[in-house]
Amino acid sequence: MGVLEDKANARLFYKYLSKVYDRINQFIWTEAMRDDALEWFAIEADDRVLDVGCGTGFATEGLLQYTDDVHGLDQSRHQMEKAFAKFGTRDRVRFYRGDAERLPFADDAFDKVWSSGSIEYWPNPVDALAEFRRVVKPGGRVLVVGPDYPDNPLFQRLADAIMLFYDESEAQRMFEKAGFVDIEHHIQQNAPGTPRAITTIARAPAADEADGAVAANAAAGDADDAPDSEVDAEA
């Protein structure tokens, strides 16, 4: 587990990173990349959307271009204070401080769940994804953006020491284990040589699909001897 896959470490990290986050983020997860992901996600005007790991509100701002019913959750008070300055505490967005692995919402509470730049800090990503499935309505979709695993062996060792990086096959495994279907992956990059993002969009089974999906994924999990990946973050 990387050093930032510890929730206390991640909170401390963002206490300081929050001061410059918006200036740094624009070179890694750009507005154009965000807007492409939003297009793929196909948000409807009446959708109720949860932004898990909303941070300073960069993705939140994009979500508000599609729907007025946006809810943001994050574990970092310092990051959220930046978002409050942009949107107010209860004006355009309803904010919550909480943990991605223990979402403080009822079952089937949202039409869609979005999370960008958060999964890499979750100690138990499959548990968090299972929470996403719980709070999204049957048939609803989720979108998660995380860091794609680097190709260079030296960078791989460095990445593993810091936080969760994962490739398309690992993303597929995690989403399937959490019970999602219709899973698709997109690799995004600002420019050649810059860090790549892996954007995964998946659907929660509709009510008449759920039992079959659970059984299939349980069987797949029993056949997989590899230990679960672990990550850190709260939303």
Results as ranks from 00 to 15, higher is better:
residue 132 F to A: 06
residue 25 N to R: 13
residue 220 A to I: 02
residue 7 K to M: 09
residue 33 M to A: 11
residue 202 A to H: 03
residue 222 D to G: 03
residue 55 G to I: 05
residue 213 A to D: 11
residue 150 P to G: 04
residue 190 N to T: 12
residue 133 R to F: 03
residue 140 G to M: 07
residue 218 A to Q: 13
residue 166 Y to S: 12
residue 150 P to A: 13
residue 187 I to F: 07
residue 234 E to G: 15
residue 117 G to P: 04
residue 126 V to L: 02
residue 235 A to K: 03
residue 158 L to K: 02
residue 166 Y to R: 03
residue 20 V to L: 05
residue 231 V to D: 09
residue 186 H to F: 08
residue 90 R to Y: 08
residue 118 S to W: 00
residue 58 F to V: 14
residue 6 D to K: 05
residue 94 R to I: 03
residue 54 C to I: 03
residue 225 D to A: 09
residue 16 Y to R: 01
residue 59 A to T: 13
residue 44 E to P: 02
residue 62 G to T: 06
residue 127 D to C: 06
residue 111 D to G: 07
residue 132 F to G: 06
residue 22 D to M: 01
residue 155 F to V: 07
residue 8 A to I: 14
residue 64 L to A: 11
residue 9 N to G: 01
residue 110 F to S: 10
residue 159 A to T: 01
residue 33 M to L: 15
residue 160 D to F: 00
residue 21 Y to P: 00
residue 107 D to R: 13
residue 144 V to W: 09
residue 165 F to D: 05
residue 4 L to D: 03
residue 92 R to Y: 04
residue 151 D to M: 08
residue 197 A to P: 01
residue 24 I to Q: 14
residue 103 L to M: 10
residue 82 K to F: 00
residue 175 F to I: 05
residue 30 T to R: 05
residue 34 R to L: 10
residue 156 Q to A: 09
residue 189 Q to A: 03
residue 131 E to Q: 14
residue 96 Y to W: 13
residue 152 N to I: 06
residue 48 R to C: 14
residue 222 D to H: 07
residue 23 R to K: 13
residue 54 C to F: 05
residue 90 R to S: 12
residue 41 F to A: 12
residue 202 A to E: 02
residue 107 D to K: 11
residue 100 A to H: 04
residue 25 N to V: 10
residue 94 R to F: 03
residue 7 K to S: 10
residue 145 V to T: 08
residue 126 V to S: 08
residue 36 D to C: 09
residue 116 S to N: 09
residue 158 L to H: 07
residue 226 A to R: 13
residue 50 L to T: 04
residue 207 A to E: 15
residue 228 D to Y: 05
residue 228 D to I: 00
residue 229 S to E: 05
residue 3 V to R: 06
residue 53 G to P: 04
residue 133 R to N: 15
residue 4 L to N: 06
residue 141 R to Q: 13
residue 127 D to Y: 08
residue 190 N to A: 15
residue 218 A to Y: 07
residue 15 K to S: 02
residue 52 V to A: 10
residue 207 A to D: 15
residue 16 Y to H: 11
residue 219 A to S: 05
residue 145 V to F: 03
residue 65 Q to N: 14
residue 90 R to K: 12
residue 168 E to S: 10
residue 206 A to H: 11
residue 86 K to S: 04
residue 77 R to E: 15
residue 84 F to L: 07
residue 210 A to D: 04
residue 211 D to W: 09
residue 102 R to K: 09
residue 216 A to I: 04
residue 68 D to W: 00
residue 133 R to L: 12
residue 171 A to F: 05
residue 71 H to L: 12
residue 99 D to Q: 08
